[in-house]
Design a protein around this nucleic acid. Sequence first.
DNA 1: GCGAATATGACGATCGGTCTACATACGAAA
DNA 2: TTTCGTATGTAGACCGATCGTCATATTCGC
Lengths: 209, 209
Amino acid sequence: MVKDTRTRMIDATATLIQARGYRGTSLSDVLAASGAPRGSLYFHFPGGKEDLVLEAVRAGVEIATEELRVALDTAEHPADGVRAFFRAAAREMVASDFRFGCPVAPVVLDEPELDTELDALCRDAFAEWAEAYRNAMRKRGVDAQRARRTARTVLAALEGALLLARSERDTAPLDEIGEEMADLVARTCADHDAATARPSDRSDGPAEA
Amino acid sequence: MVKDTRTRMIDATATLIQARGYRGTSLSDVLAASGAPRGSLYFHFPGGKEDLVLEAVRAGVEIATEELRVALDTAEHPADGVRAFFRAAAREMVASDFRFGCPVAPVVLDEPELDTELDALCRDAFAEWAEAYRNAMRKRGVDAQRARRTARTVLAALEGALLLARSERDTAPLDEIGEEMADLVARTCADHDAATARPSDRSDGPAEA
DNA sequence: GCGAATATGACGATCGGTCTACATACGAAA
DNA sequence: TTTCGTATGTAGACCGATCGTCATATTCGC
């Protein structure tokens, strides 16, 4: 089954935005990549570029969210889920010749108009991803505050690692920082375990990998 | 003393790139912001936009590098330096109404041509910053491999935190992730101390903040 | 066959980056 | 002082790209 024009346009836009950013992606590029003629755009996306980009980012976020969910749900321990997700990112990086990246970051850095739907979508995406990490740790009983901070840190580190990996054209940053974050998550959970086992005196032990 | 035209153009470009990215920054914007006339551009920057951007990024990187160096050199402990640098970033974020950011990230995400001077400059900037963190830890005797990984992680987390802070229009990500990273650096150094004190049995103790 | 949904690419207003021609400042030679 | 040559700065014309529009096909449901 051949994908319809609308879907092809969204996919092409999502890919191009990850590679070149919002403003770096021209409608002509999208048209060329999707093989669609110019006029079709305004039939499917009456709002023009803004409308198209919104759908594209939405689609990109959805895919990433789903992959993250699977990685975390499949893993025995949240730390393993984090490791798996960083590894998946590294694979996509190689597969795309280092053009892969976060679907949201390029949009945020290209300063979309504030208080638009696009702006809100980006914020929500970050929040959703952070929540996924957080929930994985909360399921292990880690307290809310601690889980929230660690989750945010993992998310930020991933964003940064994607940036470094692209710049260096090497997955090493993703690999190493992924390990580092897996350790952090493991330690966060382990600290909790130790704290609940001996509430007044938490110290050594299972924090070692 | 009034800054000369060339310097004003570079400053304006650096600021605009941080706010809107490479492609989002038009020469007209730069001209308007710097109050310089159109034609002057090709006198000062014969290479055109590419040339101008190169200088602007170079200037931005230099400022950031210097601030990082000061933060790390001034601090008692590398962890304090990291904390201070994240805090400084948070302050600049507020001062700029959340338009502040890494001078390099927007360029990397707008996919500059590969194998250009600009591309190399971005890579070198990341390498230089990572090295600064690494050296600070190595001075405390942390082993090379460990210091390198932690340094890269701190750098990535900062990049991500800047992104999150901009998106949320809130310094909370910078504040929290800064603390997380300070902890990580403190732990990295403490682990080393413990390991050297009792080479065969490293465990509890000063890892606690 | 007929109306509605979908598809098409040519068109124009605007804006982007680049370039060539012109103006001024300054110092040396006559 | 005048003349000239060079370094520096300025102005606006140019051409291509970009985005959005439209009048016209084509396909589908009935």
